[in-house]
Design a protein around this nucleic acid. Structure first.
Lengths: 197, 197
DNA sequence: GCCGTTGATGTCAGCGCCTGTCATCAGGAT
DNA sequence: ATCCTGATGACAGGCGCTGACATCAACGGC
């Protein structure tokens, strides 16, 4: 027989999300989370670096997905052509956990310090994508910019995916494709204008 | 005669930056900052929301510059054509305070929580730019994307501006122009590829 | 000139986040 | 049987940050 109840980290993460939704992030103490999970505050901090990080367990999966997808792009694909499908695949990952992702998003949207942490995760995702592009021989500056552009499309798509309130919501992956298409439209308009002038 | 020494906020901000550089952000307490400024800890928190915010006093100036510049763009300018010059002007603002900006950047680069705050300010800048674009009649999605793209160019330029270590450094505004040019190159390559396929 | 108001600052108490350190103790290895 | 390992608990303490109240020079109306 196991000495302790299994999956302490998972129990903590679930208790935290539930309490953040019930009472709000700031009005929830780490001691309360630990108590609901049947553990102590000290143990919480052995599993998660801080009170915010408990909501960001899945971000490494997004990062892996994007990096692998960039690596799997055809050799002759340009930076943007490698990043686009990668963020679409990342969007599909969120579709698989739609309910959890949306619950989590409502909590994050209600608290500035959580938004900061989310931005840091997006920045890490951007940096990982840029590194994957450099690994394909892309120069530093275009790699940074292509990565940032792709993540911007992902983020804009995420905002709209979360905001929609339909019975049959449009999948996140589709939102990402729309954002990428809008991006194409933007640059095409700019290029046309430059050509005219 | 004034009852107190003038410019309490400025004294606090200078003391904070100096101490963050001397001892590091985490190893500096708010009480130490206040003491150096000849004030108390409680007064520090009357001027700045938290220990990090004291480094981000100038961000509202960047935001105003970008918003005004977008508003001043020709009526027929596309979203990207309005955002590009705006972030170049924002870059010029940093050039005017080069030494301060670089000292500040080294502190921020050394601490994760400061990077989070910086990302939040960049997100606020992005949102302000998007709002300015919507005010020009641009739809929500392209406004978000154009704003994010411009800020991405600004951020990439900033990273390279800070990293350079030359006697006669390239101005930030020039770095921003290069980043915008690289963006054009990226999208042009992608469009060419799309045309071939 | 008196006096009430104003506003920047000080003082104090306290909560919650987070960390370092040591103790505990069931299960596995030798 | 003994030792070791690793997850957990217990405790103390520092620091960030907040609320509440006190202080007191300057200012303005009278």
């Amino acid at each position: 027989m196991a000495r302790w109840e299994p999956d302490a980290g998972g129990r903590l993460a679930r208790a935290a999300l539930d309490l953040y939704i019930e009472h709000g992030f700031e009005r929830t103490t780490v001691a309360e989370i630990a108590e609901r999970a049947g553990l102590t505050e000290r143990t919480f901090f052995r599993y998660f670096a801080d009170k915010r990080e408990v909501l960001f367990d899945g971000s490494s999966l997004l990062e892996r997905t994007v990096v692998e997808s960039i690596g799997a792009a055809p050799d002759d694909a340009g930076p943007l052509d490698a990043v686009g499908p990668a963020v679409v695949r990342a969007g599909a990952v969120l579709d698989e956990r739609r309910e959890h992702a949306r619950r989590r998003a409502t909590v994050v949207a209600a608290n500035q310090s959580l938004q900061e942490r989310e931005l840091l995760k997006m920045a890490a995702l951007t940096e990982a994508a840029a590194e994957a592009l450099r690994g394909r021989g892309v120069d530093d500056l275009p790699a940074r910019l292509a990565a940032a552009t792709g993540v911007a499309a992902f983020s804009a798509a995420f905002a709209r995916w979360v905001a929609q309130d339909a019975a049959a919501p449009t999948p996140m992956a589709e939102h990402v494709r729309e954002a990428l298409a809008a991006l194409d439209g933007l640059t095409a308009a700019s290029a046309r204008r430059a050509a005219v002038v």
